[in-house]
Amino acid sequence: MKAIITVVGKDQVGIMYKVSGILNDKHVNIEDVTQTILQEYFTMIMVVKIDEAKAGFHEVDVALHEMAEKEGLSIHVQKEEIFDTMHKI
């Protein structure tokens, strides 16, 4: 299942490393990444593929949120379906 992860937070060393580390642990494949710094804020959007046989959507979501809380980041994980239905006719 495809999902979209958005990460926003004060720029610091290792954000990308921490996020991708968790995704690696959960066998989540990163298919696309776009990242920029907007006025000191690290902003990243990832399109990923979750292999539900290895780790479910909920599990990935919880793991990312635990890390986000520790690091002071704001992370959202949403199924791609929701963006498709809202923005495509």
Partner: peptide
């Protein structure tokens, strides 16, 4: 890139 605009718009709608 439009997809990214859409993504941020949706997140914003839900969060804020």
């Amino acid at each position: 890139m439009t997809i990214y605009k859409d993504v941020l718009e949706t997140i914003h709608m839900i969060e804020k």
